[in-house]
Write a protein that binds this DNA or RNA. Structure first.
Lengths: 340, 340
DNA sequence: GTGAAAGCGCTAACAT
DNA sequence: ATGTTAGCGCTTTCAC
């Protein structure tokens, strides 16, 4: 209990000297090695606590080859969904003695590539990542040369077998689209990111299926699948809704897209739930408070975060890789009415 | 350019052998040491690129005593304000060759204390932190024993001289309160976190000053300064607004508080901007899109993040510590009308 | 059960 | 200008 006020840099050597034992004995006590006498344990622990010794994790990392650091690479932590994922993930990792290095790829493939390089050089034990583009050839190289455990968030890379936490967007989007179709919509706009990621492909499957159910094809001219950022959504929502014919309903995939689209609609003067039906894929905190209330396809970000951590720990412990599917839930609210 | 497909674990030794030179020569080339002949540089660089050698940052850290890692400790990364700060900060750090380890303290002083311990054991070069409680005795100990550079976010710890990025909440809150008082309000509720942090104290100064200007004292019974979390705000907004006499106006400090308060108001059935005047301190993205439009005191989170990184780098480079004040801006919107 | 010694990958004297 | 060597703090054989 009695700790030095200023612990300059107490090493295992200081402890060994203080306790009058060998370095290796201190190491054994610290690591809970079974071959340690009670007397030894007591002496060492006394020295440790009076000196306030704390093992140097850098030295341990170099020696053991394990840093107990997990990299976390996402587009943008200021996206509330990722923030919730990151938080839950960090807490789980922390509980198991791991720390998280956070990097924002900024939806930029080169930045992401550099992120992976730094992770590699930092010898992280694993990386949890939501890739910018599954198909980019450099990504495959990054993942392989990383030489660490990998858990992907809503991504699948062809030719590489990794663990992943996937979301069943299909189901939620299917229900949402069906809901709109049942209300009489056939001209449904869709604004989101590129099909080079699982997220969009899986959502489009649900979207197309709902149209297929009524024997229709989707109208490609109502699709804007070029970016998850708010700017893209703003511009393309603007375009879509000011062209003729214009969609009577609109879906936006991702929190930033939703934001950008709502800004555009406000600027144009189209009222959601009245002048057009609107469904958001992924929920923004506050959706419950403000009006209009937004219909949305929800997924639990905290579960995604916690599960990604568990899967990472499982790979590290037993080498077991697997995929996990998180369910989605469509909730109809005010915004998906109107428009006809 | 020609890289090996599988770079098992190329060390500086492999490079030295391949190039037929000494380890130290390779090291000199890698670090850009001036005493290197062109021939040597060429030979080493050839070996480096054919082998795909990348220096091990763990080994470098152990040797140099610098990890080029900055810790970032905040209550909760899923708070959009912190997320924006973290993102800008991470990007600036990255640009200068530093990585960020993220930890959520969860508004828990013991978790925070453990966070600092891990940071210490990981030998981070610095920590950027928004402390849970400036006054807690353990905090001082954490900061001192950290033995690293420190930049505080909106915090000041008595007896310890650190760099800090502070916000001029005073001005914004003063203006907001004056705005409410000018409209005829005298019963103004205030829901936010404890005065054990600079943020709240500084806000309360502005709040009191505006009352002082008209020769009045604030009514303590309208204050609820017990927590930044949404739950606290929900409960206490509920209490405040269902008691007699009830405030005719309400201010909430912090994004989560605002969320909790708005939920409570919705549940009670009080309409912001009509049944009561409402001002939020700190802006939530989306405030511009939804209705009612929320009056708020804004601060630029990105600037806070970028500046905190700059200040950290400055301490590391030249040891210079300083305080920086970020300005705030009050914007009156629909929500701060009504209530009388 | 305990100690001595090698070495993880790197850099910085110190020598030449 | 280049090579040799010690050592950052730790763990892990290997002896005893």
């Amino acid at each position: 209990m009695s700790e030095e006020t200023f612990t300059g840099k107490i090493t295992i050597r200081d402890v060994a000297v203080r306790a009058g034992v060998a370095l290796s004995s201190v190491s054994r006590v610290m690591s809970g090695h079974p071959d340690v006498s009670l007397a030894m344990r007591a002496r060492v622990e006394e020295a440790v606590s009076t000196l306030g010794y704390e093992p140097d994790l850098i030295a341990q990392s170099l020696r053991s080859g394990s840093t107990r650091i997990i990299g976390f690479i996402i587009r943008d932590i200021s996206n509330p969904l990722y923030a919730l994922v990151a938080r839950a993930c960090e807490q789980e990792l922390q509980r198991h003695g791991y720390s998280m290095i956070l990097m924002n790829s900024d939806a930029n493939i080169e930045t992401e590539s550099k992120n992976f390089q730094i992770m590699r050089r930092r010898r992280v034990d694993g990386v949890i990542a939501s890739l910018v583009d599954e198909g980019d050839p450099s990504v495959k190289k990054s993942l392989i040369s990383l030489n660490a455990a990998i858990v992907l968030l809503d991504r699948e890379v062809k030719g590489i077998h990794t663990s992943a936490v996937l979301t069943n967007h299909y189901q939620g989007v299917y229900e949402a689209t069906k809901h709109l179709i049942d209300a009489g919509h056939t001209k449904i706009g869709f604004v989101t990111g590129d099909e080079n990621v699982y997220t969009t492909r899986n959502r489009m499957r649900g979207f197309k299926q709902a149209f297929g159910d009524i024997g229709k094809e989707i109208d490609e001219s109502f699709l804007a699948l070029g970016g998850f950022d708010a700017e893209y959504a703003f511009v393309h929502t603007h375009n879509l809704m000011t062209s003729q014919p214009r969609p009577t309903a609109l879906m936006t995939g991702g929190i930033s897209s939703t934001w950008g689209a709502l800004r555009a609609l406000k600027e144009i003067g189209l009222k959601v739930g009245e002048d057009l039906a609107f469904v958001a894929l992924d929920e923004w905190p506050l959706f419950d408070i403000f009006s209009p209330e937004i219909s949305c396809v929800y997924r639990d970000a905290r579960t995604i975060g916690a599960e990604s951590a568990h899967m990472m720990l499982q790979i590290l412990k037993s080498g077991v890789q697997k995929k996990l599917i998180i369910e989605t839930k469509f909730t109809a609210r005010f915004s998906s009415g109107g428009g006809l």
